[in-house]
Structures are given as structure tokens and as C-alpha cells.
Amino acid sequence: MRDRYPFLISIPHAGVSVPPEVRGLVNLSREEVVFNSDPHTRLIYGFDGAVEALVDFDISRVFVDTNRAPYDYPPRAQDGVVKVITQDGTPVFRRGQIPGREVIGLLLENYYHPFHGRLARALDTRPIRIAFDCHSMLPRSPPVRMDAGHPRPLFCLSNRGDRNGRPRAAGALVTCPPEWLQALARSFQAEFDGEGRVAMNDPFRGGFISVAHHRRTRIPWVQVEINRGFYETEGREADVAHLTKLRERIFSALTGFWDEVSG
């Protein structure tokens, strides 16, 4: 039994805090901020002590989305590094109060770049062999997406490839070898056999975090999404004991995969 697995765990959307730079501008209730974040993912993916590095983030993705490019902000984008609307189309900020370049610059300087700096330092100083960018997803596609209302799988594993994990075109980027992604999908499917589908690059193909840090280091990255319907009630509550058991099962899937491909 090894002491630590050579994994980097990134949990960018668990935070629900509102940064002081935008307090007073926000149109959302506390409940809406939490719903539009990735609640419970810090517990679900909290493999502290069993992996080489774990990097999480306290600020809600509504206000600073570290999985978007730093130049992808309003008015150029509504779903960029700073959101203009939520997943159900609710305005994030009060009328006429959308942050301008100066405030967005502060958000990037104070929160966004330090998060990516922590990822980079972990990759550069720890014996990381693979990184997982860990998220949750709504049970069905939200109204703002083109596939609104479409049911989602139990897990989505992404490497920017096709639905078999292979490059979408000759020479196209994938952030993890297809054979590894396929082995990871098999490990998840075995652990959660009969409980739901494990998909590759459907409905998500991976975001900025995976692509940017893979390009720089060539260390493999996989984006992991779990369906919130698997652990949340209709009232959006979750049982801590259930989440703890779920964390153990997800870690079992990750380590089972690694023991297979690194043996």
C-alpha cells in the first residue's frame, strides 16, 4: 500500500464566497450563489493526505471562474471568468452594476491568478503523474445551454477528445491519453455498476484548467463531473455520511484505474 498516489486534485468550483470587490453589486441570494457553484465537491473529492496535492478555491465560480480563460469576460462573454447570468438565466448583478475592467482586473489579480499559481507550483514541485479537475453537474442541462433539459450521465470524464477519448481530428489536442481515459471510465463503471452511465466527453469536453496546465507541463489531465442528482435531494440537500461514502468510492475508482495503467 503506497503512502500517496501521484495525483493532483483540483476543486475549482466548491467555493461559495462572494468576493468583497463585488459585494453590493450582486443580484443573487445566498441560496442562488450556492446552487450555481459546485456545492459539496470539497467533501466529495477531498482526498487530503492520500494524494500528492490538492488545490481548492473559496470564491464562487459565479464571480471568479478559474476554469475559464482570463480574457473571457463581459461584455465579450456572459459565461466567462466573471458571469453575467446564472445557469437558469438569472442576472448575476444588479441592473447597470456589471463589473468593469478595473474590478475584473482586481478579481483576476486577487483570486484567479493565485489559484492557477498554486496549481503550477504543485505540478512543478510535487511528483505528479496525473491531475484531475473535479466538478459536479446538474442532472439535466440548464436553460442556458443548447441541449436544455437533456438528461446527463452519472459521470462525465473529459480529455477534450471524442466520446471514446480519442482526438476529434488528426493532431487535435487531448489532455490525457485515450487509453488512460478509457481505463478510467471502465474503473468508474465497475465501481458504480448498475447505478448510471459513465460517459467520455459528453456533455463536457474539459475546460481551461485542464488544457492550460496540460499544454505547459504535458502532464495528463482529466476533468471529472459527477451528477448532482446522485447525492442531492429535490430540496438540494445532501447527507454527509452519503457524501463520505461517495468520496471513498470515487477514490477507489481513481486508484483502481491508476493501479492498472501504472503497473
Rank of each mutant, 00 (worst) to 15 (best):
H40Y: 13
L25G: 00
V62K: 02
N36P: 00
F208L: 11
S187W: 02
R121F: 07
I250Y: 09
P114R: 06
A212D: 14
D88L: 10
L106G: 08
D58L: 15
I98S: 08
N36M: 11
P167W: 09
L43R: 14
R249C: 05
R228A: 13
S210R: 02
P39M: 09
F230A: 12
R215L: 12
E102H: 10
A169R: 10
P127I: 11
G263K: 12
Y71V: 07
G263S: 15
P12S: 08
Y111S: 07
G24M: 03
F7R: 05
A169E: 15
F7W: 03
Q87A: 15
G161T: 03
T90Y: 01
T90I: 12
R247H: 05
A185W: 13
P178Y: 02
R228Q: 12
F251A: 06
V92R: 03
H150V: 14
R68Y: 01
H13F: 12
S141V: 01
T175I: 00
R218F: 08
M146D: 14
D3T: 11
R118Q: 06
F251Y: 14
R247E: 06
E179Y: 05
S37H: 06
A241Q: 09
N164R: 07
T125H: 06
A50M: 10
G207C: 05
I98F: 05
P70S: 07
V33W: 01
N27H: 08
T66N: 13
A199H: 09
P39S: 11
S136M: 09
V240A: 04
E31Y: 00
A185V: 08
Q87I: 13
R118A: 03
T233S: 15
V51A: 05
N164F: 09
L173N: 02
G96H: 00
G105N: 02
V211S: 05
S29R: 09
V26D: 01
L119K: 00
G89M: 13
I219V: 07
Q78H: 11
D48S: 11
G89R: 07
A241N: 06
W221I: 00
E237D: 13
R126C: 04
V174W: 02
R23I: 14
A131V: 01
V240C: 05
A14D: 15
D259K: 13
P142V: 10
R249N: 02
F57H: 15
D162Y: 08
A238H: 13
L154V: 05
F57P: 11
V26N: 01
A148E: 15
F208Q: 03
I128M: 07
E52D: 07
V92H: 04
R61A: 10
M146N: 08
P220R: 03
